[in-house]
């Protein structure tokens, strides 16, 4: 079962995720996001953005890579075949745009167990990193997973 010792853990910042135009177009097409600001540079710039804008849930791509540090760690005790996604929350401090170099600090906010069910809540603090190393907060992504027990 989920290892309670991981609660409160904070990971080192990830290597940068480079947000590419074609990735944003691909993700937007996959979720059916047809707004031109995801696809057309002129439309995005017309709304005041420096480049193509990410759909509201694109940050999950970045967050899930960071979360893998925790959920794929054998010591964490998370059996992924028994995992159900329970909650997801995005808070955007500013929209993600193509060209961003995103670094993520993963926090394990809670690990709880009750009646054979475990619930883990993670939080990804995603920032855009400039060439000089300074970071600007971009998105906070919180996610809760439920892990069903062996006999439930």
């Amino acid at each position: 079962m989920a290892n309670p010792d991981f609660a409160g853990r904070e990971y080192a910042a990830t290597a940068p995720y480079s947000v590419g135009r074609e990735k944003l177009r691909e993700f937007a097409a996959a979720v059916g996001a047809a707004h031109p600001a995801h696809h057309d540079l002129v439309a995005a710039r017309g709304l005041g953005y420096p480049d193509l804008v990410a759909p509201p849930t694109f940050a999950v791509v970045v967050a899930q890579r960071a979360e893998a540090q925790y959920v794929q760690d054998p010591e964490a005790g998370i059996d992924f075949s028994r995992v159900v996604h329970a909650d997801e929350k995005f808070v955007h401090h500013r929209p993600i745009v193509a060209g961003d170099e995103l670094v993520t600090v993963l926090h394990v906010d809670s690990v709880t167990q009750r009646a054979g069910i475990a619930m883990v809540t993670t939080r990804c603090e995603i920032s855009a990193q400039a060439d000089d190393g300074t970071r600007e907060p971009v998105s906070t992504v919180s996610s809760s997973l439920v892990i069903r027990g062996e006999d439930s």
Partner: peptide, 24 residues
Amino acid sequence: GSVVGVVADWAGDPGAVVAYQTRF
């Protein structure tokens, strides 16, 4: 991710969606 498109289109700017949460 799919259903929020109607909100982004209504807003006229997907970047105007400053927070979004759900329970599955």
